[in-house]
Write a protein that binds this DNA or RNA. Sequence first.
RNA 1: CGGGGCGUGGCGCAGUUCGGUAGCGCACCUGCUUUGGGAGCAGGGGGUCGCCGGUUCAAAUCCGGCCGCCCCGACCA
Length: 480
Amino acid sequence: MAKNITNPEKDFARWYQDVIREAELADSAPVRGCMVIRPYGYSIWENIKASLDASFKKTGHKNAYFPLFIPESFIKREAQHVEGFAPELAIVTQAGGKKLEEPLVVRPTSETIINHMFSKWINSYRDLPMLLNQWANVVRWEMRPRAFLRTTEFLWQEGHTAHANEEEAREETLRMLNVYANFAVNVAAIPVIPGRKTEREKFAGAVDSYTIEAMMGNGWALQSGTSHYLGTNFAKVFDTMYLDSNNEQQFVHQTSWGVSTRLVGAVIMAHGDENGLRLPPKLAPVQVVIVPIARDDSARAEVMTVVERIRDNLEIEGVRVEVDSREGMSPGFKFNYWEVRGVPLRLEIGPRDLEEGHVMASQRNRPGRDSKFTIPLDSLVESIPGILDRIQNEMFEEAARKRDSRTYTVENLDDFREAIVNKPGFYDVWWDGNTEDEARLQQNTKATVRCIPLEQPEGSGKCFMTGRETNTRVILARAY
RNA sequence: CGGGGCGUGGCGCAGUUCGGUAGCGCACCUGCUUUGGGAGCAGGGGGUCGCCGGUUCAAAUCCGGCCGCCCCGACCA
């Protein structure tokens, strides 16, 4: 059992904070709710960024940057938008030593300022679609911050697109949701359920919101990415119009979509175990750590020659590798050090291995003795990429198994009330409720409708809350 | 904002009841010995005890006020 890390079975929230501290992912800042992302945590975010950014570019988007400050009046133009965001705005009223004519909002999201600019840049149907993305920080003064999951300031990307008609915009909305789902599954090794948000849960200002919902280690849900069809809601209040081929003015149809540093939290909570972090190789800042073992100087020299050659060859293969040659620390200490940090693969190389012609390897994702195996020295370098792939796959399979084994169903609210406490997880139920039913559900159980999965089964049944016959199933869960 | 808890070297805590020279573990520094699952010994550095005020010969400790943090809830990427 790892020192300084609470058992996740006993206290999951505490475990989460312990892992963040011990793995040196982040530290709290002097301002409440704000977080310093430390180098190791930040490099996980950089890997997330690099992967998504490539996908955005592949789907035709270009990066741009819009300002941090937004005139307060912009936020107020779209009724739903202002209602949703007003309570959590940080507003600058004074600057340059005097009171400002108009207060400036520190952006909570950029739909408004982007529409302001789009309305200048878009004139003709030939300007469409306009496909932009920005990597930025935003500020939302939430009541209950949690590291990575809900910080006052957070880093994210927000895509903003404008299209000639509803069909194209809706297609874009789902295309980007799919980009997120693919990232979650193939890169973060986290299974997700893509679905539509209910009226109650959708983005302030959207016509429809879509989400990917992931399950964390305690059975709670985490909304891990969202994609919105905004319709013409913002276009109408910002006059974002174009001239169509019939010489008629039309409003653009828009989308916005985003993922944030919350994804780092998702990776921690979906994969971590009682010994700390476990990182999927595709996101791990260090994919392979080599711990050289030597009793004396002459052994060390011999071992290091081999270790350095292996490191250089792995680097040529594109593997992110680090040699832990720190002196005065025992091998056992180093093993634990890198395990807490979730490094997927460890190689131990000492005089004994050189004699026997192999190295000892340990896969972080496997428990106990199963984690250790040997790799022949002469085929070491070429076998590593395959092992990393194997770890990546095993981690996804394990997360999927865990998720599936904690996905249940119930027939009525009373059963659910008990079930969600005794067996936290996803509840896949028939649903025909309205917004009031959702509110009642949350009051009674603290759970919410996470999404209406895009994939719906055949047939019908009785809504677990209203008893009405329906052909819609939804996922219920407690959520972060 | 409601309910609970807590502020004492970097981290975790004891000391507060009953006022009397600020302590322990980990971490850190130096040296020697160690190194295949969180090394040992010796020496050493670091704290105006959250802040302000009061009582007192004397306050981490008693009194008054303030501030902050954490956890649980309402809100949310």
